[in-house]
Design a protein around this nucleic acid. Structure first.
Lengths: 330, 330
DNA sequence: CTGAAAGCGCTAACAC
DNA sequence: GTGTTAGCGCTTTCAG
């Protein structure tokens, strides 16, 4: 099928191209009769407006750039779903850019994003992105940051308050007299990891104590499981908190493998529920964050910024829910 | 930062826009001295070519559309990584379109894809896509299908030969006299599911037998686990084959919950290894498909088609590897 | 080696 | 209501 242009449609319908343009853009000044004629010509010729030409003429592409760390894709599927579904509703397309550590430079990505003339950028912050965001901001383009709390003139953010969740959790345990609480670092997600740590620190501080239970995973450990397998040989805790499902699974296996009875001798909590946290035995007590909503709301926020509608809340916090399962007592 | 155009660069460098164009496109007819002057102007002004205008002028967007079933994203993360990494290397951008059952119509997606004037389309086939592909084909645009074997003038495909893998697997078991082999249907992936079934059927046929072990999951079952939990109350098998990791986990739990000892009373094999298949105890014997390569090779193939290079193999089959773990004997 | 000018397909004043 | 026309920012002949 040859690409048909607006001119050919105009000729076929015996009108000028302006009229065709009016029809495809839903202008209501066109006489019903001509409209019908044009619509017939369009479907007869199989005409599809060229979004590139439209983009050039309008200096608007109805396109947003989505920037994701490659490592995050495996656990952000639902988020992408939410984002795309909402994009679809508002007739936006999404450009996908992944950042692979070592392969892709964030600067290059931003370059691409600018060249592609997207109307806005949504970026998943698994680490400190202040510099990148600042770079983007210079181009005066709406930005939504997912996963961290940050805002300014052109920036909104949507995040999950892990810090508060952990604060509350630790407070509850401290109230019960349980003080040996370990938190496993998540190298894959600096931001969340440090929020979680902060929550614990604050809870301990408010109980007149100092928090010292942060477990750093040394960089040369290829697998968390291996690390924990030997860690649990020499360490015991009353409560062990992991961020991702796979880390919690690793903790469960490593602890059990070292003869630690869960939950009797050690309780285990995962900050991010997944189908896998409840596919193992014992099922892992977890917090569940609304991933789909994270994407959906981010995109919705973006559409608002693009339409210059008022955004009542520039830093949108999503609820996180705790579902005790079988790796905690009570 | 105001968007700077090629004109402003031209003025700054005291040349015509044609020369600027030549510089940014790496034409080698430009005198070194002028080139330097232009390059300085570019970096001084922070000029970034407008890909939209380029696209219009060239009728080429260096952009490909990626069409994915929403349900597949959670397990196709690595594939997306591979695809994006290769796209980056060849300077292509990728448009992401997800198909959400009930929400998005594939026809609409194709419409969008056509409007966006991508140079090519990569589509993940988790079900029969013949109609959609035919629709796309009419637009005379290169297509790469991932996950199914199909080709024609403008179509290449990259797939994993689950059929052969299961054929070999079943043959081995049949040779040992093990005939009660169940295969669990995967509603999420019709294509793979039917390939797997086909492989078993052929193996049985070649052993002079009829295959009847395909377990259909009725549509009203919200969770595979629930279904299997009651299934195993009345059914026993010597070997149980599941496609996705979560199905295998469900089978493991459901069987164990019903007192079936794995692997002694029933062996279990998963067709798609993941970190989760080896995060449970016992670790699940699995096949592993090269997901990253699936994406990478698909994109590589696309670049070849776009450059009209010869494609030696229009239907590229990827190897699948079997790693016995602890849910099988021997 | 460089510049002038036509066009890529469409939108949006501005006429009529 | 509809047509005419000037761009949107860039590439690419074609002259010089």
């Amino acid at each position: 099928m040859k690409k048909v242009t607006i001119y050919e449609v105009a000729k076929e319908a015996n009108v000028s191209l302006a009229t065709v343009s009016r029809v495809i853009n839903g202008s209501n000044v066109v006489k019903q009769e001509t409209r019908t004629r044009v619509e017939e010509a369009i479907s007869k010729l199989g005409y599809r407006p060229n979004a590139i030409a439209q983009g050039l003429a309008l200096s608007r592409t109805t396109t947003v750039g989505l920037i994701l760390p490659a490592t995050s894709i495996s656990f952000s599927g639902r988020m992408i779903n939410g984002l795309c579904d909402v994009a679809k509703i508002y007739d936006y397309s999404v450009y996908l850019h992944t950042i692979t550590e070592g392969v892709t430079d964030i600067k290059e990505i931003i370059d691409e994003v600018i060249k592609s003339r997207v109307d806005g950028v949504i970026i998943y912050a698994d680490r400190d992105l202040d510099d990148s965001v600042k770079l983007l901001e210079e181009y005066n383009i709406p930005i939504v940051v997912m996963g961290n709390k940050i805002s300014s003139d052109n920036i909104c953010s949507v995040y999950v308050d892990y810090e508060q969740a952990v604060y509350d959790l630790c407070s509850r345990y401290l109230d019960k007299g349980i003080e040996d609480i370990a938190i496993l670092q998540d190298r894959r997600n600096d931001v969340i990891s440090s929020h979680i740590r902060k929550g614990a620190q604050d809870a301990f501080r408010d109980h007149g104590k100092n928090y010292e239970g942060y477990v750093e995973v040394s960089k040369d450990n290829r697998s968390t499981y291996k690390f924990l397998k030997s860690y649990f040989k020499t360490h015991r805790h009353q409560l062990f908190i992991a961020n991702r499902d796979s880390q919690a699974l690793a903790a469960l296996n490593a602890a059990t493998g070292n003869g630690i009875v869960i939950p009797d001798e050690m309780e285990l909590i995962c900050m991010n529920e997944s189908k896998y946290t409840s596919s193992v035995r014992p099922e892992i007590s977890s917090f569940s964050a609304p991933s789909y909503d994270l994407g959906a709301i981010s995109m919705r926020l973006m559409t608002k910024m693009l339409k210059e509608e008022a955004v009542e809340e520039k830093e949108k916090c999503l609820d996180i829910l705790y579902s005790p399962k079988h790796t905690t007592k009570e």
